[in-house]
């Protein structure tokens, strides 16, 4: 009788562990996305002054990635969503210290649908636009992605040009491998600053290593 009681307790322990694991399978994605957005919003505060101008080239190649990620913020405005990246100081051609957007005026971000592929291809979105500073210079201005009607827009015209802000800056959203279903979750797999000569960027694996989790955004289309 005692052995049977112990057996029941062992089974209960296994069921509880398995239950925890499988309940996460069902809810992890939503919780993960929500908690990551919250973590990013709360982690970045106060003045940031990433002056990378005195770093060796080897340290700079890691340092700028850390600086980019430290300024990450998910910005939601109505039915639009965007990301800011951290700015940092570099030297321009004249040797003066400038924010990165001044030397590298192009910003590019790549996102891939999470957990879905069509004929071996994962739906991909590439955003290309100007690298503009936020008002306080600490971050880049976000390239806002309009979620309402986005699927239909990108299916009809895989490369869309969108006007941003009040200065008439434009940026493009380009999609590949999109089909009938709109993937709800999209993971950032790359971001870069560039000019005509050089590119400073990081890929999805580097992002994960710096954030310690996947940077996945909820792109559910508003009804």
């Amino acid at each position: 009788m005692k052995k049977f009681k112990h057996f029941k307790l062992i089974v209960l322990a296994l069921v509880l562990s398995g239950g925890l694991y499988y309940s996460d399978l069902l809810f992890l994605q939503k919780r993960q996305v929500a908690s990551l957005e919250g973590t990013i919003r709360s982690a970045v505060s106060g003045d940031r002054n990433f002056d990378l101008t005195e770093l060796s080239s080897k340290d700079f190649m890691r340092g700028f990635k850390v600086a980019m990620v430290s300024g990450l913020q998910v910005v939601r405005d109505g039915h639009e969503v965007g990301l800011t990246w951290g700015q940092f100081l570099v030297r321009n051609q004249s040797g003066a210290k400038v924010y990165v957007c001044e030397k590298y005026p192009h910003l590019e971000m790549t996102l891939k649908a999470e957990g879905v592929a069509y004929s071996g291809n994962i739906p991909t979105i590439v955003l290309r636009g100007p690298c503009l500073s936020s008002d306080d210079g600490q971050r880049t201005r976000p390239l806002m992605i309009p979620l309402r009607g986005l699927h239909r827009l990108l299916r009809e015209n895989p490369k869309n040009i969108i006007k941003m802000g009040d200065r008439g800056d434009t940026y493009s959203i380009e999609a590949q491998s999109l089909y009938d279903e709109w993937p709800q979750y999209w993971t950032v797999v790359g971001a870069s600053f560039s000019n005509d000569i050089e590119t400073l960027g990081l890929d999805g694996f580097e992002l994960i290593s710096l954030l310690d989790q996947v940077l996945t955004l909820d792109f559910a289309e508003p009804q």
Binding site: A13, L14, L16, S17, G18, L20, Y21, D24, K58, M61, R62, K65, L202, D203, F205, E206, I208, S209, L210, D212, Q213
Partner: peptide, 22 residues
Amino acid sequence: GILVACDRLPKLGPGNEGQNKL
């Protein structure tokens, strides 16, 4: 069991200093 259930993040591959990859 709980620790095992929670520790599910896979390990990434190594960086590459020559290619400046983390």
